[in-house]
Structures are given as C-alpha cells and as structure tokens.
Design a binder for these strands. Structure first.
Length: 110
DNA sequence: GACATGACATAAC
DNA sequence: CGTTATGCCATGT
C-alpha cells in the first residue's frame, strides 16, 4: 500500500539493469509495474540508498543525463557510465547502442 | 489544503 | 534541433 512498495519495485528494476547498459525513467517505471510514473522513478532514486544502486544507468528518454550539466551528480554519473564502457558525448548516450532491451542483450547492435 | 517544483514521458506543431 | 501542452505524483512550503 504505502509508496514504499513502489520504491522497492523501482529499486528492484534499477538493480537489474545490466552493467554497460542504460534504461530510461519511463522504461524503469513500466518494468516496475508503474506505467506513466516516470517521475516517481526520479524521486525514488533521489531517496534511494545510492550505495547499492546503479542509479547512474538511468537516463531520460532522449538518452540524456537528467541531472544539471556540470553538477556533481552529473559528473559522477558520466564517470560511472564511462567506467562501464558507455560512451557519453555531450551528456548524451546512444540508446540504440546502450539501451537496455529487457529479455535479451541486443545481440545485433553490439 | 492550495501552490510550486522536479533525476520524466509522449504527442503535436 | 525547439516549444507547448498534458499527464503524472511525491515532497516541501
């Protein structure tokens, strides 16, 4: 009942995003059984125990890092993504290449 | 309770 | 690539 359950579902999905891939807020919301609640994902990440969560693998639907450019969070996310081999150019990521396709690892576009 | 804000999305122009 | 509009909703004032 409490929104806590929703947060749990969200954190759960985020935790399952494979290394080197990224998912959009909306995608995470859908996978968490919360269609249309992309915003809640952002809120959940903000409240989340970032220590254990690959929050950096979540970006917006346009493949752009949602945090303010040049903010500490932005740089941290960019750094973590690059460390996983995800190319970030001008705060952007190519979703066709790094987007997380649930159920299989893009075997053709690698 | 009303109002404003924001790590968002989608559609339409 | 832009802007506007609408939907969404937890949080904070």
């Amino acid at each position: 009942m409490p929104i806590n359950a929703s947060y749990q579902a969200i954190w759960n999905v985020v935790s399952s995003i494979p290394r080197g891939r990224v998912a959009s807020y909306g995608q995470v919301a859908r996978l968490a059984g919360l269609p249309g609640r992309a915003r809640l994902v952002g809120t959940a990440l903000g409240e989340a125990p970032s220590r254990q969560l690959p929050w950096h693998r979540v970006i917006n639907a346009q493949g752009r890092i949602a945090l303010p450019p040049n903010s500490p969070g932005f740089r941290e996310q960019r750094k973590r993504l690059r460390e996983e081999g995800v190319m970030v150019v001008k705060g952007r990521v190519d979703l066709r290449q790094y987007g997380w396709k649930t159920g299989s690892d893009s075997p053709l576009l690698d």
